[in-house]
Design a protein around this nucleic acid. Structure first.
Length: 422
RNA sequence: GUGGGCGUAGCUCAAUGGUCAGAGCACUGGACUGUGGCUCCAGGUGUUGGGGGUUCGAGUCCCCUCGUCCACCCCA
């Protein structure tokens, strides 16, 4: 009986891990330039936090949360997303007393109990960014630019930025009613899912992929026509900014986010190379959430990137090279092995990856091993070398070989490696 | 939660219901007593994912279950 990772969860190992590390490194560096600082919040929260923010009737809350009762009788949930915990943190520590805006980013695992498919897992990783305290659309624009720069920097092209505004508490109800009125007459001919959506979240009908429903919704009310003055102005200014900044985007009036807390700006970054789950990143404004969590009215905006989806794109883009040690030390006999360990330590202090030989094996098999793990150099230490205080070195790329005093090894290796044709 | 495809060696895959389930790659050792790559030789663990059934006989057919992949719902 062999064990395997839990369903929908996966191990990330070399060489894939280097893709992940690179993305995180680039993100950290870039986000700092925009004033976003890293925070770490717990991986679990009180269940209420997610119910209150994401929405009681959303799929995430209704059927996708990993919820359990701890030994103190508290209901605890593995976070299904990152925004709610960050908002809780912001309010708990009264960060609204600090100068606005406060900007944060985080990386980490999220959990949703779903059927796995391409680009969807039960444990998945996000890089998220959240900014608090600015209602101006210039913040929206800045965040979108930052995201675009990140994606460009890590080398992903051909992405589509989709943009929409879903209004605020004032104007969304009007739009919702207009939609309900529009759908009502032909409700019976819509697909069963849409009939359910009619009751739970009518905006979602705009998103349905069933051809019949796509046809039926032609002529449906347009969000843009129902935005209140403030929301319309906000949206127009954002669009203006994006044009000025030369950020290509697509307006998608059918872009509806699944989480209840969104207001005004919503956006999604999609790729055609991902299968059905094609959103690489998504986000939007949530101007009411801080207040909802007991803080003062504080506008906010953020996004999250799906790491697995990003990694998928990066993987199909280029071949990965597996890192290999610079030096392998082949030794014959116990004394030589000990000397080899000492030499290894001194070379490591100069900063390169070195692999020693562990235990007895023929020189031949050690040489073969050095070759297979991709080492550039082999140092050979046997009885003869021990007596002479020297080691044999061999460059495996060009087969040059020579002898060197033990004390000179580190410097020799640095010099020789420069000759190596890459 | 719903629907479909697929589970055979570490990996990629063969095997009409019929002998003891094979091949390539990879791995380890040797040919080469202290020198890698090329070549040759040798070496193997499979509870054929698991359980039950049909049959003289099941990797193959049927049922259940688990896993995986893809899609729906929904979402990063």
């Amino acid at each position: 009986m062999k064990f395997s990772a839990p369903k929908g969860m996966q191990d990330i190992l070399p060489p894939d891990i280097y893709i992940w590390q690179n993305v995180e490194e680039v993100a950290r560096e870039l986000f700092h330039k925009y004033g976003f600082q890293e925070i770490r919040v717990p991986i679990v929260e009180s269940t209420d936090i997610f119910i209150r923010s994401i929405g009681e009737t959303t799929d995430i809350v209704e059927k996708e949360m990993y919820t359990f009762t701890d030994k103190g009788g508290r209901s605890i949930t593995l976070r299904p997303e990152g925004t709610a915990p960050v908002v809780r943190c912001y309010v708990e520590h009264n960060l609204y007393n600090l100068p606005s805006p406060q900007k944060f980013f985080y990386t980490g695992a999220m959990f949703r109990y779903e059927r796995p498919q391409k680009g969807r897992f039960r444990q998945f990783y996000q890089i998220g960014a959240e900014a608090f305290g600015v209602s101006q659309p210039s913040l929206d624009a800045e965040i979108i630019v930052m995201l675009k720069n990140l994606l460009e920097k890590i080398g992903i092209a051909g992405l589509n930025f989709e943009l929409n505004s879903i209004g605020c508490d004032k104007c969304r109800p009007d739009y919702k009613n207009a939609l309900l009125k529009f759908f009502k007459s032909k409700l019976a001919i819509y697909c069963p899912d849409c009939q359910r959506r009619y009751r739970t979240n009518p905006l979602r009908i705009l998103d349905c992929k069933v051809p019949g429903c796509v046809e039926l919704r032609k002529g449906a009310p347009y969000v843009k026509d129902y935005l209140c003055n403030d929301c319309r102005e906000h949206f127009n200014e954002l669009i203006f900014s994006l044009k000025e900044l030369k950020i290509p985007y697509t307006l998608n009036p059918n872009l509806v986010r699944g989480l209840d807390y969104y207001t005004r700006t919503t956006f999604e970054v999609t790729s055609e190379h991902l299968g059905a789950q094609k959103a690489v990143a998504a986000g939007g404004r949530y101007d009411r959430l801080v207040e909802e969590f007991g803080g003062p009215p504080t506008p906010a905006m953020g996004f999250a990137i799906g790491m697995e989806r990003l990694a998928t794109l990066l993987k199909e883009k280029s071949e990965q090279k597996i890192p290999s040690p610079k030096v392998f030390i082949a030794t014959l006999g116990r004394d030589a092995e000990m000397e080899g360990f000492k030499i290894a330590e001194s070379i490591r202090s100069s900063g390169c990856w070195i692999e020693p030989n562990y235990g007895g094996a023929s020189l031949k098999s050690q040489m073969r091993k050095a070759d297979r793990i991709g080492a550039e150099f082999v140092l050979i230490i046997g009885d003869n070398e021990l007596k002479a205080g020297k080691v044999q070195w061999k460059n495996l790329k060009n087969s040059q070989q020579g002898e060197v005093e033990i004390k000179d090894i580190a410097s020799i290796i640095q010099k020789l490696s420069d000759y190596i044709p890459k």
